[in-house]
């Protein structure tokens, strides 16, 4: 009896959960037929940057809510799941798709499916080889952030010194391009060289560990250049604990609220702002235009260098 009861309770819990989830989906997806529909396929809603981009999209989509419906899906960083979601959009005959690719290789195929179905597809945030086949791209050029970051590091170090590069999750587009950008600049400065390189998986905890271990190698490090702010903060925490933050320059990318705080107090010397709001707005704007049949063009949102001199300007962006 007891057994039965708990099964019933659990089942009814699950059913009610599923129902309430469906209901919420319905509110977004359902509605009158007269409205045009835009499907938005997000790569990973648990990525901090993407959450800011979505905030901007939802802010922007309100402006068009009288004529448009916006359906958001989350691939949870799973390329196959994203493929299914896009296929659903296509079979539903949405009027435009906003596509934030999980996998920059599979992306080419997804774009061509939308093209075959005659549905405009706007790629946002992550670019890839073959992105020109899409209707338009709204975002930045990943490699640029690595270039800007390293250029500023080189400037602050007068073009010489030993560099340690902290990679993000290996194989991730941002890791590949940012490190590539870093190395391009280093190769132009004969007095700079990479003495250490390792991955801290974009994570602060791993950044602390890797930096602690690097400090034990006895290698002379003049700057730690990290693929993102979280790892850079991890490196800063380990350096502070070892009393070596004065000797080693630390640089990150992303200009997250936490990162900006570290720039403000002078511990993080360099970070690079990627405009989540700008990308989100541009994507909605392009998709709405494309769905109406207007002609659209790529919108490249530039990265911006952040140092102590201009950090307040960026802190203000988050406090709006």
């Amino acid at each position: 009896m007891k057994f039965h009861k708990s099964i019933v309770i659990i089942l009814s819990l699950i059913v009610s959960l599923v129902l309430s989830a469906c209901n919420r989906g319905e509110q977004v997806a359902g509605g009158s037929d007269s409205k045009k529909v835009i499907g938005i396929a997000e790569a990973n809603m648990s990525n901090e940057f993407i959450t800011y981009m979505i905030d901007a999209m939802k802010e922007e989509d309100k402006k068009h809510s009288s004529d448009f419906e916006f359906v958001y899906t989350d691939a949870q960083n799973d390329s196959a799941k994203q493929m299914n979601q896009i296929e659903n959009f296509i079979s539903r005959k949405v009027d435009a798709i906003i596509f934030n690719p999980v996998d920059t290789v599979a992306a080419v195929d997804i774009v061509s499916r939308a093209n075959e179905a005659g549905i405009p597809i706007i790629v946002v945030n992550r670019t890839f080889d073959g992105v020109d086949k899409a209707t338009a791209y709204a975002g930045s050029q990943s490699i640029e952030s690595g270039l800007i970051q390293m250029e500023e590091v080189a400037k602050q170090m007068s073009g010489k010194g030993n560099i340690a590069i902290m990679d993000g999750e290996m194989g991730h587009e941002a890791q590949i391009k940012r490190t590539e950008g870093n190395k391009e600049i280093i190769s132009k400065n004969p007095d700079m060289k990479v003495v250490l390189q390792g991955t801290a998986k974009f994570s602060r905890a791993d950044g602390i560990k890797l930096m602690e271990n690097w400090l034990q190698t006895g290698e002379k490090i003049d700057a730690v250049v990290a693929n993102n702010d979280e790892m850079a903060i991890g490196a800063i925490m380990a350096l502070e604990e070892a009393g070596k933050l004065d000797e080693i320059l630390v640089a990150g990318i992303d200009a997250t609220p936490a990162g900006l705080e570290f720039v403000k107090n002078g511990k993080l010397k360099v970070t690079v702002f990627q405009n989540a709001t700008g990308q989100g707005k541009a994507a909605i704007d392009l998709a709405v235009k494309a769905a109406k049949g207007e002609k659209v063009e790529d919108q490249i949102i530039p990265y911006e260098l952040v140092t102590k001199d201009n950090v307040d300007e960026f802190i203000a962006k988050y406090n709006k």
Binding site: D167, M170, L196, Q197, G198, T199, K209, L210, N213, W214, Q216, T217, E219
Partner: peptide, 13 residues
């Protein structure tokens, strides 16, 4: 193992 490989600068792959 983690620590030793980091110290030796072994590549992450």
């Amino acid at each position: 193992v983690n620590n030793g490989l980091d110290l030796m600068g072994v590549s992450s792959y």
